[in-house]
Amino acid sequence: VIAMPSVRKYAREKGVDIRLVQGTGKNGRVLKEDIDAFLAGGA
């Protein structure tokens, strides 16, 4: 999974398994917005 360390930390704090999140950034990078969208109700 491609993600910046700050995004990985954010996901950990929110209790999200970053491997389950679909990245929308360049080359499938997971963004902070992707974590929020995942929490809001889905992949």
Rank of each mutant, 00 (worst) to 15 (best):
Gly28Ala: 06
Val7Leu: 05
Arg12Asn: 14
Asp36Ile: 06
Leu31Ile: 09
Val1Ile: 13
Ala43Phe: 14
Leu20Met: 13
Val30Pro: 03
Asp17Gln: 05
Gln22Met: 12
Ala43Arg: 09
Gln22His: 14
Leu39Ile: 14
Val30Asp: 00
Leu31Val: 09
Ala11Trp: 02
Arg19Lys: 11
Asn27Leu: 09
Asp17Met: 05
Leu20Gln: 12
Ala43Gln: 14
Ala11Thr: 01
Arg8Tyr: 15
Asp17Asn: 09
Arg29Glu: 15
Asn27Phe: 11
Ala43Lys: 14
Val21Tyr: 00
Glu33Lys: 15
Ala37Leu: 11
Arg12Ser: 14
Asp36Ala: 04
Met4Lys: 15
Gly15Cys: 08
Val16Gly: 00
Asn27Asp: 13
Glu33Gln: 13
Leu31Trp: 05
Ile35Asp: 00
Arg12Glu: 15
Gly25Val: 03
Arg12Pro: 01
Glu33His: 12
Gly25Ala: 05
Val21Thr: 03
Arg19Ile: 07
Pro5Arg: 14
Val1Pro: 10
Gln22Tyr: 11
Lys14Asn: 11
Lys32Glu: 06
Arg8Thr: 08
Ala40Leu: 13
Lys14His: 12
Ala37Tyr: 09
Ala11Val: 01
Gly28Ser: 06
Asn27Lys: 11
Ala11His: 01
Glu13Val: 09
Leu31Ser: 10
Ser6Ile: 08
Gly15Tyr: 06
Arg8Asn: 06
Glu33Tyr: 09
Tyr10Gly: 01
Arg8Met: 15
Leu31Phe: 08
Tyr10Gln: 02
Ser6Lys: 10
Ile2Ala: 08
Val21Gly: 00
Ala43Thr: 14
Ala40Glu: 13
Arg29Gly: 07
Gly41Asn: 15
Gly15Thr: 04
Asn27Gln: 10
Arg12Leu: 15
Gln22Ala: 12
Gly42His: 14
Lys32Ile: 12
Val30Lys: 03
Gln22Gly: 08
Ser6Phe: 09
Leu39Ala: 07
Thr24Pro: 01
Ser6Trp: 13
Lys32Gly: 04
Ala40Phe: 11
Arg19Asp: 08
Gly25Thr: 03
Ala3Pro: 05
Phe38Lys: 04
Gly41Arg: 05
Leu20Asn: 11
Ala11Tyr: 01
Asp34Arg: 00
Asp36Thr: 05
Gly42Thr: 13
Leu20Trp: 10
Ile18Thr: 03
Ala37Gln: 11
Val30Asn: 00
Gly23Arg: 03
Asp17Thr: 04
Asp36Pro: 01
Ala3Arg: 04
Tyr10His: 04
Pro5Asp: 14
Leu39Trp: 06
Asp34Glu: 00
Ile18Leu: 10
Ala40Gly: 11
Val16Leu: 06
Ala43Trp: 13
Arg19Val: 07
Leu20Arg: 12
Ile35Ser: 00
Ile35Arg: 00
Asp34Leu: 00
Arg19Leu: 10
Val30Arg: 03
Leu39Asp: 05
Gly41Met: 15
Leu39Phe: 07
Thr24Arg: 06
Gly15Lys: 09
Arg12Tyr: 15
Gly23Gln: 03
Gly23Ser: 04
